[in-house]
Simulated scan of single mutants.
Amino acid sequence: MTNEQALLRLAASTLDAIRDVLETYAPGAVNPGAVAAVSPGTHPLAGAQTPAVLADVGYVDGVTGGNIMVIGVEGARRLAAAMMGGDPNEVEPGGELSELDFSAVGEAMNQMMSAAAMATSRVLGDEVEIAPPNVRLVTSSAEAEEGIEAGGLACTVEFTLCGAPCLLVQLVPHAFIVRMTRALDEMTESYESAPLSDALRSVPVRVWAEFGRAEMPSGRVVGLPAGALVELDREVDEPIDLYADGMRFAVGRLQVCEDGTLAIRVERILAGTVAGDDAAAADPTSPPLTSPEYKEVA
Rank of each mutant, 00 (worst) to 15 (best):
L7M: 15
I18E: 09
D20Y: 00
V21C: 11
P27R: 07
G28K: 03
N31L: 01
A37E: 13
V38Y: 11
S39Q: 09
S39E: 05
P40V: 09
A48Q: 03
Q49R: 12
V60E: 14
V70M: 14
E74I: 00
E74G: 13
G75Y: 15
A76Q: 00
R77G: 05
R77A: 07
M83S: 14
N89F: 13
P93W: 05
E96Q: 04
L100I: 13
E107L: 13
M109L: 15
A116L: 10
M118C: 02
S121K: 04
S121W: 04
L124H: 06
G125V: 04
D126M: 00
V128H: 08
P133S: 06
V135M: 02
V135P: 01
A142Y: 04
A142W: 08
A144Q: 05
E146V: 11
G147Y: 09
G147L: 09
G147E: 06
C155I: 10
T156P: 00
V157L: 07
T160D: 05
A164M: 02
A164T: 00
P165M: 10
A175S: 10
A183L: 07
A183K: 03
T188V: 08
Y191M: 11
A194H: 14
P195V: 04
V203W: 11
W208Q: 06
A209W: 08
F211E: 02
G212F: 05
G219D: 11
R220N: 03
R220D: 13
V222N: 07
P225Y: 08
L229W: 01
L232V: 01
D233M: 02
E235I: 01
G246W: 09
V251G: 07
Q255P: 00
V256E: 14
V256K: 07
V256Y: 06
C257R: 15
E258L: 03
E258Q: 07
I264A: 01
A271S: 15
A271G: 15
G272Q: 04
T273R: 12
V274L: 05
V274H: 14
G276W: 08
A282C: 02
P284C: 08
T290Q: 15
